[in-house]
Amino acid sequence: MNHELTQDEDDLGRLIACPECDLVYSAPPVAVRQKAECARCHTVLIAPRRKAGKQLIALAMTVLILIVAATLFPFLSIGAGGLHHDASIIEAAFAFDGGLSILSVAVLFFIVIIPATRLMLLIYVLTPIIRDRPPAPLARAAFRLSEALVPWSMAEIFALGCAVALVKLSDLADVVFGPAAWMFAVLVVLVVATDSLMCRYSIWTSLDE
């Protein structure tokens, strides 16, 4: 099958392969709000949204601001027997010391640095696209890195961790959500929205032009 296809580069450009199961399709025209799914493994291949670029940038900026703000404010505070203690995200990350301090660095990366980097890369890649300018320098490498960071960006997992910690401590002491905890709760919703809005196929196609 390969030989017929290699003859004409233009024909190849119209073909897409499912990234999960490698079935090859000729890319169909997909209208806004429709989606193209792999017939074999049901991976969503193309799902364009109207003004997705602008919305994605707006969402990414919001999440970025939330992450920065959430690291500065206390996110949980505890009170028991007249004693009181607040904890911020930075303090949570640096809870590991001694031989475990490497874990502090990892936690800081997972919940602050990697999510923030990924969002900044996304904004960098998308801004020229929505303004109909040529892609930013190194935009492809930036988008590739941003996609590689997705599984390691764990801000939303940390947010759920707060809820679990709250349940665990509720018998022992009075635990109160601080401002940062509410920011993280909003952040979870926004991260999910970002993922459902993003159509990789559309972004790569616009980077090709």
């Binding site: 505890i78 027997g81 904890a87 303090e91 809870a95 961790g161």
Partner: peptide, 9 residues
């Protein structure tokens, strides 16, 4: 991480 940063009474 959360528990050990928070429970410092």
């Amino acid at each position: 991480a959360i528990l050990s940063s928070l429970v410092q009474l």
